[in-house]
């Protein structure tokens, strides 16, 4: 009679099996949550709600805590993202060296606001906490690649490299 979750599954059987494998792999190490979330993100490119529920049950951690951790780190995606994810650093060093203008240029070039996906599904534009390259502020990351010392007029050229 144990009813673990009431919702019908949206993930495929093989995807669910992957989730369970990931949980099993890290379950017995100390502090399993972050490694599990990283592995899930590597697998699915985002953290599906259904997977988080399985993690909650598998690791016996309240879902609220898991979501709290997942939503704290900007590197975790809580929804499916476009093909390329642009993370514009909003930390203080970038801010004082013109991040705002760069972000505006990105919004203009892509035709979206921060937090949105382009209509063609190619780019997601997001803000990020410090990405650790303050020496070349202002900086952005596109997928795993860092672009620093930016000015607004450099934006179209950088985006073109992903077309």
């Amino acid at each position: 009679m144990a009813v673990a979750t009431k919702k019908p599954s949206v993930l495929s059987k093989s995807a669910l099996a992957k989730v369970d494998q990931i949980i099993a792999r890290h379950k017995d190490q100390p502090g399993p949550l972050l490694p599990v979330l990283h592995a899930l993100q590597a697998e699915f490119k985002y953290l599906p709600e259904e997977a988080l529920v399985r993690v909650a049950i598998g690791l016996d951690i309240p879902l609220s805590k898991i979501y709290g951790v997942a939503s704290f780190y900007t590197l975790f995606n809580l929804r499916p993202k476009a093909e390329h994810v642009i993370r514009a650093c909003e930390s203080a060093p970038c801010h004082v060296r013109g991040a705002k203008e760069v972000i505006e240029a990105l919004e203009n070039a892509l035709g979206v606001k921060v937090g949105e996906d382009t209509r063609d599904g190619r780019f997601t534009l997001e803000l990020s906490s410090c990405i650790g390259v303050c020496g070349v502020a202002p900086a952005i990351m596109i997928d795993d690649e860092v672009f620093g010392n930016l000015t607004p007029d450099m934006v179209p050229g950088i985006l073109a490299r992903f077309n």
Partner: peptide, 20 residues
């Protein structure tokens, strides 16, 4: 021992709320 409330999000968006 219920645990439905927790701090979520970060910085200026931080709020204490249930998951999702």
């Amino acid at each position: 021992g219920v645990g439905v409330l927790y701090p979520i999000n970060r910085g200026k968006d931080a709020i204490v709320a249930p998951a999702m």
